[in-house]
Simulated scan of single mutants.
Amino acid sequence: MSKVLVLNASYEPLNITSWRRAVVLIIKGKAERIEHNGKLVYADLPLPTVIRLRHYVRVPYKEIPLTRRNLLHRDAHTCQYCGYAGDGLTLDHVLPRSRGGGDTWENMVAACVRCNVKKGNRTPKEANMPLQSPPRRPYSSLYFEVSRQVRSGIHQEWRKYVIGT
């Protein structure tokens, strides 16, 4: 039916859960409803879209793997040079590997084949092809799922709880 964003006691996003699990946490007093969509689960219980845990939960940091899929998702499947959003995107090194550029979040972007070939073995500045947005490491593994939900227009209320969406 609906997904619910779970926030730590510090308002930091923890995960996404089902509406049923969220309602159970609220009824047990382990969480409080922060946002709802107006639909009712029971007569006096609106369907939550964002809940906050009442007690802080320590979560170990989890590194997000640098994969083609994750890079394309970070860049919204859009060429970072011309804005083309379609099939056949490639990955481009901002500082070419032949010049010492490595495989890092900050040095790789999605690019269409045309822009990748046009840029060649140059930096964006040398090729006079500015990036639409600077490449950066995603904030958290939860970032991917939350950004997908926000971009699809389903959960716009999540935007204020997540950095960079």
Score class of each variant (00 low, 15 high):
Ala76Tyr: 02
Ala76Met: 03
Ala76His: 08
Ala76Asp: 07
His77Val: 00
His77Cys: 05
His77Ser: 05
His77Gln: 07
Cys79Met: 13
Gln80Thr: 00
Gln80His: 01
Tyr81Pro: 01
Tyr81Thr: 01
Tyr81Glu: 03
Cys82Asp: 14
Gly83Ile: 13
Ala85Glu: 14
Ala85Ile: 06
Ala85Tyr: 00
Ala85Thr: 15
Asp87Ala: 15
Gly88Ser: 02
Gly88Thr: 00
Gly88Leu: 06
Leu89Gln: 07
Leu89Lys: 08
Thr90His: 15
Leu91Tyr: 04
Asp92Asn: 05
His93Ile: 11
Val94Tyr: 07
Leu95Asn: 03
Leu95Thr: 14
Pro96Ile: 11
Arg97Ala: 15
Arg97Leu: 04
Gly100Ala: 10
Gly101Thr: 06
Gly101Ser: 07
Gly102Trp: 02
Gly102Met: 08
Gly102Tyr: 01
Asp103Thr: 08
Thr104Ala: 13
Thr104Glu: 14
Trp105Val: 01
Glu106Asp: 15
Glu106Val: 09
Asn107Met: 03
Met108Trp: 01
Ala110Asn: 15
Ala110Trp: 05
Ala110Pro: 15
Cys112Ile: 11
Cys112Arg: 11
Cys112Trp: 10
Arg114Ala: 08
Arg114Lys: 08
Arg114Trp: 11
Cys115His: 01
Asn116Pro: 06
Asn116Ser: 10
Asn116Gln: 10
Val117Ala: 04
Val117His: 06
Val117Trp: 04
Lys118His: 07
Gly120Pro: 10
Arg122Gln: 15
Thr123Trp: 13
Lys125Val: 12
Glu126Thr: 13
Glu126Met: 09
Glu126Gly: 12
Ala127Ile: 07
Asn128Trp: 09
Met129Gly: 09
Met129Thr: 10
Met129Asp: 09
Met129Tyr: 07
Pro130Cys: 12
Pro130Met: 12
Pro130Gln: 12
Leu131Cys: 04
Gln132Ala: 12
Pro134Asn: 02
Arg136Phe: 04
Arg136Met: 05
Arg137Trp: 03
Pro138Tyr: 10
Pro138Gln: 12
Pro138Ile: 05
Tyr139Thr: 09
Ser141Glu: 15
Ser141Asp: 13
Leu142Gln: 07
Leu142Thr: 08
Tyr143Thr: 08
Tyr143Ala: 13
Phe144Cys: 02
Phe144Glu: 05
Phe144Thr: 03
Val146Gln: 04
Val146Asn: 01
Ser147Pro: 00
Ser147Leu: 01
Ser147Ala: 15
Arg148Ser: 12
Gln149Lys: 04
Gln149Ile: 00
Gln149Gly: 00
Gln149Asp: 02
Gln149Asn: 06
Val150Lys: 03
Val150Ala: 03
Arg151Cys: 04
Ser152Ile: 00
Gly153Tyr: 01
Gly153Trp: 02
Ile154Met: 03
